[in-house]
C-alpha cells in the first residue's frame, strides 16, 4: 500500500477511535432511558479524582534520583497551590507558576 494512503488511514483511525471513546458513555447512558444511579454517582465523584490523576500524569517523568530532583516542578507546583489558595484566580495561578517554572529551568537549573 502506498505510504501516503496508509498514513491517511492511520490518521482516520486515530480520529475515529478518539471520537468513539469520547461519545461512548453518552451513547450508552444519556438517551431517553434514565441514567443508572451508579453512573450518576461516578459522574459526581470522578471529576476531583480525574483531576488528581491528571496532576500525577503531568508529573510522571520526574526522577528524584538525579538532578534537578524534580525541584523545579515542586517549587513551581507549590507556588500554583499557594496562589490559588490565596487569590482564587486560576489565570493568575497558572501564569505565575509557569513563569516561575520557565525561570527555574532556563536560568537556575
Amino acid at each position: 500500500m502506498p505510504m501516503r494512503i496508509h498514513a491517511a488511514l492511520l490518521v482516520a483511525i486515530m480520529s475515529a477511535v478518539t471520537i468513539l471513546l469520547r461519545f461512548l458513555p453518552f451513547l450508552i447512558w444519556s438517551g431517553r432511558r434514565k441514567t443508572p444511579k451508579y453512573i450518576l454517582y461516578l459522574g459526581r465523584v470522578l471529576p476531583p479524582a480525574i483531576i488528581g490523576m491528571l496532576v500525577i500524569y503531568c508529573l510522571k517523568d520526574i526522577t528524584f534520583s538525579a538532578a534537578p530532583f524534580g525541584l523545579p516542578e515542586l517549587i513551581a507546583g507549590v507556588c500554583v497551590v499557594l496562589l490559588q489558595a490565596l487569590r482564587r484566580n486560576s489565570l493568575l495561578s497558572i501564569l505565575g507558576g509557569t513563569i516561575l517554572y520557565m525561570f527555574l529551568v532556563q536560568v537556575i537549573f
Partner: peptide, 20 residues
C-alpha cells in the same frame, strides 16, 4: 523551554480550587 508547565499548572490550580 518550560512553557509546557502551563498545562501542569492548570491541573494543579483546578485540583487546589476544587479541594478548597
Amino acid at each position: 523551554e518550560g512553557i509546557e508547565f502551563s498545562m501542569t499548572a492548570l491541573f494543579i490550580a483546578a485540583f487546589t480550587g476544587q479541594w478548597l
